[in-house]
Design a protein around this nucleic acid. Structure first.
Ligand SMILES: [Zn+2]
Ligand SMILES: [Zn+2]
Length: 827
DNA sequence: TATAAAGGCATC
DNA sequence: ATGCCTTTATAC
């Protein structure tokens, strides 16, 4: 044993604090301690947290006494050094506490602690007579609920400091912390069938097949063996176990399998099922690239000689995916890992199925909605750099946090999607931008793909910061759709409107349906949620906690606020004018569905929006019903535009383009162009040109014209000029501060003072303070201040200065209770 | 005067 | 974040 050194560790905790905390290492842990291990530490009064060790040293803190580490959770580091540097980079860039980054990065299962779960020890004999009253209560409760966290236990027992009590139970081996159990999480297992070792040679198998084919009664057994060989392959004595269930699904009889096992030809064993079901390996052949795709691929690869990031622009159906697949294949072959970022919504679509057909076991899907065990499984496999599994991770935003060891390529599909930006909890990061940063950490390349690139990316490409590759031809020879406008102003004059439908659109719907094709109708969600309103005076009830109008939910017949939990039943009498004539007003997807079913009663209508896709399979079921042509008209929100490819859509209708063209913020036109183009792209089939009808009161609007002309470039260049003139991204970086407090006057005063401080430093780059569109949410008043910084300004210095200024601001005692939310590169 | 809600503060 | 201790509001 070496001499007794006293070690200390610096630890980050998953709480919104930017500092690290120093703990003392008990001597017996000296040998086990390592950087980037997880530990359980006491924090505050009687709380336990999971932290991550970032530094081991021997400097005892001078001004306080360090507490001891309670427990070490890992034997090997849970995150990599690179990952930690990435976290720190991100924390600085987005001005978010490192604890917030840790929180966003780790799957929930990795940070159980304060809410440490307790279970009854499997070896407990059930003898309760020796227990104290309190201990007895804990065990009783655990027998009912199986797992309880410390907080729940404290509520049940009715005392706050339950630490000693739990400790005693732990020492007596009566209970167990769930970490100890769940850390060795149990993967799903299943019965697998495999050819017995003795029969794994061509000659023996052939002999046996001959034997089987001689008798009719053994036909089923022959079928089983053939299926096993077909599904599992048979190369040089190597066999793959096949899930018995899937054999049964494929028509293999259980009794035949049992007979074969009795004869010693097969063996059944329980193995771990990878949660990512790999598909049919029959589609093993990789796609053959078209001339245009090959050219694009070559261009991408040669761009990578000089540039780290390449923007691949290709319209819907131009076959970007095949190019991705080819690039992925090459990188996987070289033994490196690949990260493929897709917008959240695309994860439920055909894309995943296609990719799994090519990459089978090597693909892992990472998604914040997966259960924590599955995420933990992928995390571990990626961390171990397992040569066979999860070499390619397809994931939403949060997959940038995986512990890659040897990343060889990052692809960001639909890079313009605003859902890459995380708004709500800090860190407010943009996964597309962070993907590029991550690639830099690995000195590797990023590919951004889009039909309608973000203006920022396009400009970066124009300036030569990114490589640029354009894929023009439509892969499947499908023509671009014909886009027409329904002039709503004109039709209103002509009195030919039927509710929100123009005659032009209705006529076209009828015609398309008559030809046996399908229709998609798109309605923007924002601004179209129904409200409850008085017909006489226009009054509609507001939320008591927020400056918003309540939304009417027809299904449940309640008025709900979208910003808090407030809800009431619809009132019958108008409090403003006393009339009883209150009704629903709005033209959300639900109303569109109702109205259309009245106009076209024989048409089968489906609706795809948040409500109808809330349950797990709603989304998929709708997609399938539409694919199987059980639905003629699909009405939907943004969802119908993203990542779906349908084969029989003859017409797409955009019900209200004008709402999108309200210039509420500097990105409004960009979003409108992207959305309209994307929706339009759903129209068209293999052999026939699709049609798109945009309902608008302003058919001459330049953005609509660019959509009609399919002219992204000219749209983008127009927009870029605007951005330059008005100091917006990509020429200026935006940092938005939101001040928040219950006291309206205090926020006002605070915002004024903070903006004054900012202006002393940044002068005319500071805008505001202004009230946001919704000035009060959940009884908190809001004020916004916007800072526009030249792109080429030293980011780090700016952030440092901002930290100084916020410190200065909060040094005014009066302003201390104000919440300050900092959003770097807001969407 | 008792009790509850709200604000302030440190956490290693 | 979150518990704790203080101040402050408010019910009795
Ligand atoms: Zn509200
Ligand atoms: Zn009224």
């Amino acid at each position: 044993m070496s001499e007794r050194i006293t070690l200390f560790v610096d630890i980050i905790l998953p709480i919104p604090l930017s500092q690290e905390f120093t703990y003392r290492v008990p001597f017996e842990m000296n040998e086990l301690i390592q950087e980037y291990l997880r530990v359980i530490v006491p924090f505050g009064k009687g709380k336990l947290y999971t932290g991550i060790i970032t530094k081991i040293h021997q400097e005892a803190p001078k001004i306080y006494q360090a507490k001891y580490i309670e427990h070490i959770l890992d034997e090997t580091p849970l995150i990599t050094k690179k990952q930690f540097s990435f976290w720190k980079w991100m924390s600085e860039y987005y001005m978010a506490p490192i604890g917030d980054v840790m929180n966003a990065a780790l799957p929930a299962n990795f940070k159980l602690a304060s809410e440490t779960k307790i279970v009854i020890h499997p070896d407990f004999d059930g003898e309760k007579s020796a227990l104290s009253d309190r201990e007895y209560l804990v065990i009783e409760a655990l027998e009912i609920k199986e797992t309880l966290d410390l907080k729940e236990i404290s509520e049940i027992i009715g005392i706050k400091t339950i630490q000693p009590l739990i400790k005693a139970l732990l020492e007596k081996n009566i209970v167990l912390t769930l970490e100890e159990v769940s850390n060795k999480f149990s993967p799903k297992t299943g019965l697998f069938v495999v050819i017995h070792e003795d029969y794994r040679s061509d000659s023996i198998l052939n002999e046996f097949f001959e034997l089987l084919s001689q008798k009719k009664s053994t036909q089923k057994q022959e079928h089983v063996l053939l299926k096993i060989l077909q599904l599992g392959g048979f190369h040089a004595g190597q066999v793959t176990p096949i899930l018995r269930k899937s054999l049964e699904d494929q028509g293999c009889s259980l009794s035949a399998m049992n007979t074969l096992e009795k004869q010693g030809i097969l063996r059944t064993e329980r193995l771990e099922i990878s949660r990512i079901t790999s598909l049919d390996k029959s589609k093993f052949t990789f796609p053959i690239l078209s001339q245009a795709q090959l050219k694009a691929l070559t261009e991408i690869e040669s761009s990578y000689q000089e540039k780290d990031t390449v923007l691949l622009q290709g319209i819907t159906g131009s076959g970007k995916t095949e190019i991705y697949i080819e690039l992925i294949r090459k990188v996987l072959d070289s033994g490196k890992q690949v990260l493929f970022l897709v917008p959240e919504i695309a994860l439920t679509t055909q894309l995943i199925q296609r990719l799994s057909a090519y990459f089978g076991e090597k693909i892992g899907v990472y998604h914040s909605k997966f259960n924590s065990n599955e995420r933990v499984e992928i995390w571990n496999k990626v961390l171990q750099n397992d040569p066979n599994k999860f070499r390619l991770v397809v994931g939403a935003r949060s997959s940038i946090f995986l512990p890659f060891q040897d990343l060889g390529l990052v692809i960001v599909d639909e890079e313009h999607e605003t859902s890459y930006k995380q708004h709500d909890p800090s860190p407010r990061y943009n996964a597309r931008d962070m993907a590029i940063v991550l690639a830099h950490f690995f000195k590797t390349k990023t590919l951004l793909g889009s039909a309608t690139p973000a203006i920022e990316s396009f400009q970066n490409a124009r300036e030569g910061k990114y490589g640029y590759v354009l894929l023009t031809e439509r892969f499947s020879q499908v023509q671009l759709p014909e886009i027409l406008c329904a002039d709503m102003k004109e039709e209103r004059k002509q009195k030919s409107l039927n509710g929100h439908f123009s005659r032009f659109l209705l006529e076209n719907i009828t015609e398309v349906l008559k030809n046996g094709d399908q229709v998609i109708l798109f309605q923007n969600r924002r601004g179209y949620t129904p409200i409850w309103t008085c017909e006489i005076c226009g009054f509609s009830p507001n939320c008591i906690n927020c400056d918003t109008t309540l939304n009417y939910h027809k299904h449940s017949n309640v008025l709900k606020c979208h910003h808090c939990s407030y809800h009431t039943s619809p009132i019958g009498t108008c409090p403003a004018c006393g009339s009883n004539r209150l009704k629903m007003l709005g033209f959300g997807t639900e109303k569109v569905e109702d109205d259309l079913s009245l106009i076209l009663p024989d048409v089968r209508i489906g609706r795809m929006d948040l409500e109808t896709t809330r349950n797990k399979n709603g989304h998929l079921e709708l997609i399938q019903a539409f694919e199987n042509r059980e639905i003629d008209v699909l009405i939907g929100t943004q969802m119908v535009a993203k990542g779906l490819d349908f084969d029989h859509v003859g017409l797409v209708g955009i019900l209200d383009a004008d709402l999108m063209l309200n210039k509420t913020d500097f990105r409004a036109f960009e979003r409108a162009f992207q959305l309209m183009t994307q929706v339009a792209g759903r129209s068209g089939r293999r052999n026939k040109r699709g049609k798109v009808i945009i309902q608008t009161g302003n058919p001459d609007h330049w953005v609509i014209q660019k959509v009609i002309e399919h002219d992204y470039d000219s749209f983008a260049i127009n927009e870029i000029v605007e951005r330059r003139n008005y100091h917006y991204p990509p020429f200026y970086k935006i940092i938005r501060f939101t001040l928040k407090h219950r006291d309206r006057d205090l926020v006002e005063a605070g915002a004024l003072h903070f903006s004054k401080l900012l202006k002393e430093q940044f002068h005319e780059r500071v805008l505001g303070p202004e009230s946001p569109v919704i000035a009060r949410i959940q009884n908190y008043y809001l004020k916004e201040i916007v800072l526009k910084i030249e792109q080429e300004a030293p980011q780090k210095k700016v952030k440092e200065r901002l930290h100084e200024l916020t410190d200065q601001f909060f040094s005014v005692p009066h302003f201390k209770p104000i919440r300050l939310i900092t959003d770097v590169d807001p969407a």
